[in-house]
Every structure is written in C-alpha cells, then in structure tokens.
Amino acid sequence: MGLSHRTRVVIGTADCDALGHMNVARYFALCNQNGFAMQTAMGWNPGDTVDGQRLSFAVVHSESDFKSEVMEGEALVVETDISEISNRSATFRNRIWREDGAPVFESHWKSVLLDLETRRAAHIPEPFREALARYMTL
C-alpha cells in the first residue's frame, strides 16, 4: 500500500452548527485542507507556477458516505491518498475517523488538474505523476 497523508484535528465550536454537531461543510473542508497539505508534502504547492504553468486540482465529481455524527471536542484523524491517476485527473480517497479507529466519513473525489491561466484541464506533468503515484492505494 502507498503513502497517505494524515492530519489530527480537534473539532471546535466554530466547526459545529445549530444542531450541535459538525457541519456538513466542515467534513469537506477538512478533506480539502488535507489534500492540499498532501500535495505540499509532495513538493507541489497548489496554485504555484511549475515549469511555466500554474496548476491545481479541481473536484469534478464526489461520492461521500457520512458514517457517524461528530460533536465538539472530538479528536479526529483525516487521511487522504489516491485510488486512480489518469492523464488529466486523479481520484483522491478521503477518510475521517475517530482516534479509536471508528469511521466517521469517507469520500472519493475525482479531480482534474486545472491550468489556472486557461481554466482548462491540463496533462499531469511526469514529476507530479511520480509524486502522486507514491500515494496510490492497492
């Protein structure tokens, strides 16, 4: 199995909604932040200019399962890896669980590599493809 990027977070008051649990938008925000952190760890900062191009992934399709309610003060682990890489896209697998291993959320995001100048899908450069491949799951 490949690498994964993990981040530990503690859910605060601002993460929760009027119902007293973590708001749905926060699940996606945690995965998005973790995915950007993973890319930065690869040496590919989202939005940076590399070889004359400003590139970043943009989600075009997502499928998600909410497995458990999360309350203020709970400590969670957010994990991101990659399940598929094609010429212009990658599918990111995001999982959130409690520190005891109980699952909270899982989501798969198909994302195209976007040229931020032309606003069109771009081919994944070979050095970036190699970095992404290290995070591939079996």
Score class of each variant (00 low, 15 high):
residue 3 L to A: 08
residue 4 S to Y: 11
residue 4 S to C: 13
residue 4 S to I: 01
residue 5 H to C: 03
residue 5 H to W: 14
residue 6 R to M: 09
residue 7 T to V: 15
residue 7 T to L: 07
residue 9 V to H: 03
residue 11 I to C: 12
residue 13 T to K: 11
residue 16 C to H: 06
residue 16 C to S: 01
residue 17 D to I: 07
residue 18 A to W: 01
residue 19 L to A: 10
residue 19 L to F: 07
residue 22 M to R: 08
residue 22 M to P: 04
residue 24 V to Y: 02
residue 27 Y to W: 09
residue 29 A to S: 11
residue 30 L to P: 01
residue 32 N to V: 04
residue 32 N to A: 13
residue 34 N to P: 01
residue 39 Q to P: 01
residue 41 A to C: 03
residue 42 M to I: 04
residue 45 N to F: 09
residue 45 N to T: 13
residue 45 N to G: 05
residue 46 P to V: 04
residue 47 G to E: 00
residue 49 T to A: 08
residue 51 D to A: 15
residue 51 D to F: 09
residue 54 R to G: 05
residue 55 L to I: 09
residue 56 S to E: 03
residue 57 F to S: 08
residue 57 F to K: 08
residue 60 V to F: 06
residue 63 E to Y: 08
residue 64 S to R: 04
residue 65 D to H: 02
residue 65 D to G: 00
residue 67 K to H: 06
residue 69 E to Q: 12
residue 69 E to L: 10
residue 70 V to P: 02
residue 73 G to A: 02
residue 75 A to M: 09
residue 79 E to F: 02
residue 79 E to Y: 02
residue 79 E to R: 12
residue 80 T to E: 06
residue 84 E to G: 02
residue 86 S to N: 14
residue 86 S to Y: 03
residue 87 N to E: 14
residue 87 N to G: 15
residue 89 S to Y: 05
residue 89 S to F: 09
residue 90 A to G: 08
residue 90 A to H: 06
residue 90 A to I: 08
residue 94 N to H: 15
residue 95 R to T: 14
residue 98 R to T: 08
residue 101 G to M: 09
residue 101 G to N: 03
residue 101 G to L: 07
residue 103 P to L: 01
residue 103 P to F: 00
residue 104 V to C: 05
residue 105 F to R: 10
residue 107 S to R: 12
residue 108 H to Q: 12
residue 109 W to I: 02
residue 110 K to N: 14
residue 110 K to G: 06
residue 112 V to L: 13
residue 113 L to V: 05
residue 118 T to P: 06
residue 119 R to H: 11
residue 119 R to Y: 10
residue 121 A to C: 04
residue 121 A to P: 01
residue 122 A to Q: 04
residue 123 H to K: 15
residue 124 I to V: 15
residue 127 P to Y: 15
residue 128 F to Q: 13
residue 128 F to A: 10
residue 128 F to D: 00
residue 128 F to Y: 15
residue 132 L to F: 10
residue 132 L to T: 15
residue 137 T to H: 11
